[in-house]
């Protein structure tokens, strides 16, 4: 009885073993051989096989693609980090907010890097993203950044290295006697629409077309804002100059 049970068990497992050993490879073999046979099987089975191969290469190439994307992103986008940070600082007037804004911008830019039109100005693309982030973050949520704190800016100026060289110290023009803080304050005393275009044009060196795209206004508007903005700024700077005893008329 026991012998019979054992035998049947052995028989069963043997059957399973045989099935695994013979039938499965045979099926697989049939599946494979069918591929090489002429007729409709080939047509039906072939796409399956190529799809299989394709997914494998896709996996490998995507990783490669990802690495390439990363490298391209570093070369195209990350190189503008300083400019972006400065722009964020100008917008938020707050170092912490600026850092957050730049981080958010890069995260978004990386995610959508495929949609960046190659050959166009990547810096302009990043600025546009940052500006949109800024609007969403601070304007829509009515979470306005703190009021301009000039003492903070002053400290900030003194605590951070100047990465521009002072080439114009020799000039005695009253304009050149102005300090960084004064120009900065004058710029920030302007209404935002003027300050923004001046910043994008004079500091960041964007073209009118790029600026128009960023501020979502026609080029004509950019022109007139720059004209009025510079005029206002000049008046402000002359005020400073007069305050410090420079005769601005004589320099004309």
């Amino acid at each position: 009885m026991i012998d019979l049970l054992i035998f049947s068990k052995v028989h069963k497992s043997l059957k399973i073993y045989c099935f695994k050993l013979i039938i499965l490879p045979a099926r697989a073999l049939v599946g494979k051989t069918m591929l090489f046979e002429p007729g409709r099987f080939q047509l039906m089975d072939k796409p399956d096989a190529t799809r299989h191969i394709k997914t494998r290469t896709k996996k490998e190439s995507l990783t490669k693609e990802e690495r390439q994307k990363q490298l391209e992103f570093q070369n195209e986008a990350v190189v503008h980090l300083n400019s972006l940070y400065n722009y964020a600082l100008h917008l938020t007037m707050n170092p912490d907010d600026a850092e957050d804004l730049v981080q958010e911008t890069y995260l978004k830019a990386y995610r959508f890097f495929n949609s960046f039109e190659r050959g166009t100005n990547c810096k302009a693309w990043l600025f546009k993203i940052l500006k949109n982030n800024y609007i969403n973050r601070f304007r829509k949520n009515s979470k306005e950044p703190g009021k301009v704190d000039y003492d903070l800016i002053k400290d900030f100026y003194h605590s951070i290295k100047d990465i521009r060289s002072d080439t114009s110290e020799a000039e005695s023009d009253y304009f050149h006697s102005l300090l960084h803080e004064e120009v900065y304050q004058a710029l920030h005393s302007l209404p935002e629409e003027f300050r923004e275009v001046i910043q994008l044009c004079d500091i960041e060196g964007f073209t009118y077309e790029e600026i128009a795209n960023m501020v979502e206004s026609p080029i004509g508007t950019v022109r007139s804002r720059l004209y009025r903005g510079r005029k206002l700024l000049r008046e402000q700077l002359e005020e400073y100059a007069k305050k410090y005893g420079f005769n601005t008329d004589k320099d004309q």
């Binding site: 940070y85 400065n86 100047d162 002072d166 114009s168 102005l178 004064e182 004079d202 500091i203 700024l233």
Partner: peptide, 14 residues
């Protein structure tokens, strides 16, 4: 004015 802005506004390092 353009020149002044260009020269006088400090660019900070991130």
């Amino acid at each position: 004015t353009k020149m002044i802005i260009k020269e006088r506004i400090i660019q900070f390092k991130a």
